[in-house]
Computed example of a mutant assay.
Amino acid sequence: MNRQSSLSLQPLIGGIIAALLVVISFNAFIVINPGQAGVLSILGKAQDGVLLEGIHFKPPVISTVDVYDLTVQKFEVPAESSTKDLQNLSASFAINFRLDPVKVVDIRRTQGTLQNIVSKIVAPQTQESFKIAAARRTVEQAITQRSELKQDFDMALDSRLEKYGIIVLDTSVIDLNFSPEFSRAVEEKQIAEQRAQRAVYIAQEAEQEAQADINRAKGRAEAQRLLAETLKAQGGQLVLQKEAIEAWKQGGAQMPKVLVMSGDNKSSVPFLFNLGDIQTQ
């Protein structure tokens, strides 16, 4: 009876062992996909040599593999600093980076997860790099030399993150803010400049008007000179005749029925009257 029981259990035990072997065999290999890198740890100790894309053997049960994403990572990191003239300056940077596959094992040993990399390395080094770039300029230069500010920031950040196995691909300034006091000072300066420009415009306008008055005065003087020369040359009779006619026109009179001239029409002033006025009398 016991022999029969043991014989019936043998297939069951054999199946269990076979299933365990299958599970262990599947657990003895790991596939690293493109854009990934793995770090093999045996009994909790990271092994040298990064696991790149492909299939890799790992000792079952006693080993684990930490997989890191080598594709481009993007994080927004805030930063604050003081400028050369001791003005507060704050910014927000978008950092695009990826991990150096050659240094993934060192990253695993020193930093651990990607979240630790961002919080313990990327964020602090972004802050320090921004302080370096901002301290070289006044707050006004930070505005007018924004591209140079970013260039200094990029150089400082690249050199600081490279030694940690972090390759910076690109950075961009999302926001750049100043202290409320400086913002008010900028606004007041712009208002003062606008007022100064308005004052210059008014002064130029007044100068042009004065020059126009001078030109008109010169024109009147020239007209009077020509009038005097005409009076002198022709005895003044033609000018007097012209002025008599102009005065008559400006008085609003109607066209006369009769125009009487003396015999010498070159030297006499015309006598104007309206026959209708005589007839009414």
Rank of each mutant, 00 (worst) to 15 (best):
M1K: 09
R3G: 07
R3V: 13
S5W: 07
S5M: 08
S8Q: 08
G15P: 04
L20P: 02
V22G: 02
I30P: 02
A37F: 04
G44N: 09
K45F: 04
G49E: 14
L52W: 09
I55N: 09
H56E: 09
P60E: 02
V67C: 06
Y68S: 03
Y68N: 01
D69S: 06
T71R: 10
T71K: 08
V72G: 02
Q73V: 13
F75R: 10
S82A: 10
N88H: 14
N88C: 10
S90M: 03
A91D: 03
R98L: 07
P101G: 06
V102E: 13
K103W: 08
V104G: 03
I107R: 05
I107V: 12
T113K: 06
Q115T: 15
I121L: 15
I121W: 01
Q125C: 05
Q125G: 03
Q125T: 00
I132N: 04
I132V: 15
A135N: 15
E140H: 10
Q141R: 10
R146C: 00
R146E: 15
E148N: 11
E148C: 03
F153K: 02
M155K: 14
L161M: 08
L161E: 00
Y164E: 15
I166K: 01
L169M: 13
D170T: 08
T171A: 02
S179M: 04
F182Y: 13
E188C: 09
A192H: 09
E193M: 12
Q194H: 12
A196F: 14
A212T: 08
A217C: 10
K218S: 04
A221P: 00
T230F: 03
Q237Y: 12
I245P: 01
E246S: 05
Q250V: 04
Q254C: 06
K257W: 10
V258H: 09
L259R: 03
L259I: 14
N265R: 08
V269F: 03
F271R: 08
L272W: 07
F273M: 11
